[in-house]
Amino acid sequence: MGSVADCFDNALAETFLATLKTELVYTRAWPSWHELETEVFYHIEGFHNPRRRHSRLGNVSPDTYEKIHHESLTDIEVSGR
């Protein structure tokens, strides 16, 4: 990753955290830190990673993208290219 004072160092993390806060954290009041922590985990593992569409992946979910990618690799292996 970048060097000292590189503006692109934290771009990915900052974008992810901004999205997480907008979609989850700021949507309601959280009665306890533990409840928020648990909900953040389930949001990331249950929605963000497998089902949320990502523009960088052609507006498909990571699960769908991996299936398409795996199928393309399998097609290449089967055809012998």
Score class of each variant (00 low, 15 high):
residue 44 I to C: 01
residue 7 C to V: 11
residue 31 P to Q: 10
residue 73 L to K: 15
residue 57 L to F: 12
residue 29 A to F: 13
residue 6 D to A: 15
residue 14 E to L: 10
residue 48 H to P: 04
residue 39 E to V: 01
residue 22 T to N: 12
residue 71 E to H: 11
residue 35 E to A: 11
residue 3 S to K: 12
residue 64 T to Y: 00
residue 80 G to M: 01
residue 43 H to A: 10
residue 38 T to Q: 13
residue 48 H to T: 02
residue 56 R to T: 14
residue 50 P to T: 09
residue 57 L to G: 00
residue 77 E to A: 15
residue 65 Y to W: 15
residue 71 E to Q: 15
residue 34 H to C: 08
residue 43 H to P: 00
residue 26 Y to W: 14
residue 73 L to A: 09
residue 53 R to W: 03
residue 34 H to L: 11
residue 77 E to I: 11
residue 15 T to R: 15
residue 67 K to G: 00
residue 41 F to M: 07
residue 69 H to S: 09
residue 65 Y to T: 06
residue 55 S to E: 11
residue 29 A to N: 11
residue 76 I to C: 14
residue 49 N to D: 12
residue 20 L to D: 01
residue 73 L to W: 01
residue 65 Y to H: 00
residue 68 I to L: 14
residue 17 L to S: 06
residue 34 H to D: 13
residue 65 Y to S: 05
residue 66 E to D: 03
residue 71 E to R: 12
residue 66 E to W: 14
residue 29 A to R: 14
residue 18 A to P: 00
residue 7 C to R: 06
residue 39 E to M: 08
residue 30 W to N: 04
residue 62 P to Q: 05
residue 81 R to A: 15
residue 9 D to K: 15
residue 48 H to D: 12
residue 52 R to S: 05
residue 46 G to P: 00
residue 27 T to K: 15
residue 42 Y to V: 07
residue 15 T to E: 00
residue 44 I to H: 05
residue 7 C to M: 10
residue 63 D to T: 14
residue 32 S to A: 12
residue 55 S to R: 09
residue 78 V to L: 13
residue 1 M to D: 02
residue 11 A to C: 09
residue 28 R to Q: 09
residue 2 G to P: 07
residue 25 V to G: 05
residue 77 E to M: 08
residue 49 N to R: 01
residue 7 C to G: 12
residue 28 R to L: 05
residue 49 N to H: 10
residue 31 P to I: 06
residue 78 V to A: 07
residue 22 T to M: 08
residue 21 K to S: 11
residue 5 A to L: 14
residue 67 K to V: 02
residue 67 K to A: 02
residue 17 L to M: 13
residue 21 K to M: 03
residue 19 T to V: 06
residue 22 T to I: 05
residue 1 M to I: 00
residue 42 Y to D: 07
residue 7 C to T: 04
residue 53 R to C: 09
residue 19 T to D: 07
residue 8 F to P: 03
residue 79 S to Y: 01
residue 40 V to K: 00
residue 64 T to H: 08
residue 8 F to V: 02
residue 61 S to P: 11
residue 61 S to H: 01
residue 45 E to C: 12
residue 7 C to K: 07
residue 78 V to M: 09
residue 55 S to V: 07
residue 34 H to T: 10
residue 66 E to G: 01
residue 32 S to R: 13
residue 25 V to S: 02
residue 20 L to V: 11
residue 79 S to C: 13
residue 40 V to H: 02
residue 56 R to S: 15
residue 63 D to L: 11
residue 63 D to P: 01
residue 16 F to S: 06
residue 2 G to N: 01
residue 55 S to N: 05
residue 77 E to Y: 11
residue 77 E to L: 15
residue 78 V to D: 07
residue 40 V to Q: 05
residue 80 G to L: 03
residue 81 R to M: 12
residue 77 E to S: 13
residue 46 G to L: 02
